[in-house]
């Protein structure tokens, strides 16, 4: 089943998402990238109803890009997350709501700080030091509570992430086999091999 994890460190945010695209009990694809780069310093991991996820993520991606093109600078993480949250909250009370859960991680170049937001399909948004979605969250959050260091180095952050992923792999019956890990910091976004 779908799992995504994210955590902040001294000056970065790490986001990890599994790579399976499933339909019912069948894995249709095992190398799906479910983390979008919305702007040079903004990442968004999405999970949920399969049709909704891509449709919604692309809608967000294009709108954030449009803002960037129009105004020469992109929305700051806090503003982007607020706008995305509002889109979900409005969708919730529409005729066909999107069922999409998000982890939004960004690096604010204006004040040089990392930001992570946990957003669910209801439009609930929380600014958090670490977060998770899916069944993996039941295993990961306890570990992250114990081992997360808000001032940790990137290596330390990746170690904590490995713990969370390993624990999920060990204990969850329907654990995903593969993850894509992305990092955002002052240099922008990049993919990392765990």
């Amino acid at each position: 089943m779908e799992c995504s994890f994210a955590l902040t460190g001294k000056d970065y945010v790490i986001i990890a998402a599994d790579t399976t695209a499933a339909r019912s009990i069948v894995k249709m694809k095992v190398d799906e990238d479910k983390i979008k780069t919305l702007s040079p310093h903004l990442l968004m991991a999405y999970s949920g109803e399969s049709g909704d996820t891509i449709q919604f993520a692309e809608f967000i991606e294009r709108n954030i890009r449009l803002y960037h093109i129009r105004n020469l600078y992109p929305l700051r993480p806090q503003s982007a997350a607020s706008w995305i949250r509002r889109s979900l909250a409005e969708s919730l009370r529409s005729r066909s709501p999107y069922t999409v859960n998000l982890l939004i991680g960004g690096f604010d170049t204006a004040d040089e700080s990392p930001h992570l937001y946990w957003v669910d399909y209801l439009g609930t948004m929380a600014s958090v030091p670490f977060a998770a979605h899916g069944y993996g969250s039941y295993f990961a959050l306890g570990l992250l509570d114990r081992y997360h260091n808000p001032d940790g180095s990137l290596e330390e952050g990746l170690d904590v992430l490995r713990r969370a992923i390993n624990e999920t792999a060990q204990r969850l019956v329907v654990a995903p086999g593969n993850y894509i890990v992305k990092v955002v910091d002052k240099d922008g976004t990049r993919e990392i091999k765990l």
């Binding site: 949250r85 509002r86 979900l88 909250a89 919730l92 946990w118 209801l122 439009g123 609930t124 948004m125 929380a126 600014s127 958090v128 977060a131």
Partner: peptide, 28 residues
Amino acid sequence: VAMNFEKIFPVTDRIYLGLTGLATDITT
């Protein structure tokens, strides 16, 4: 999910509003 979710917001210097219930509606 979070242990820092504030539910009380300043409206003016002399009014504060607290909102309980569904968090998405609290923010909205």
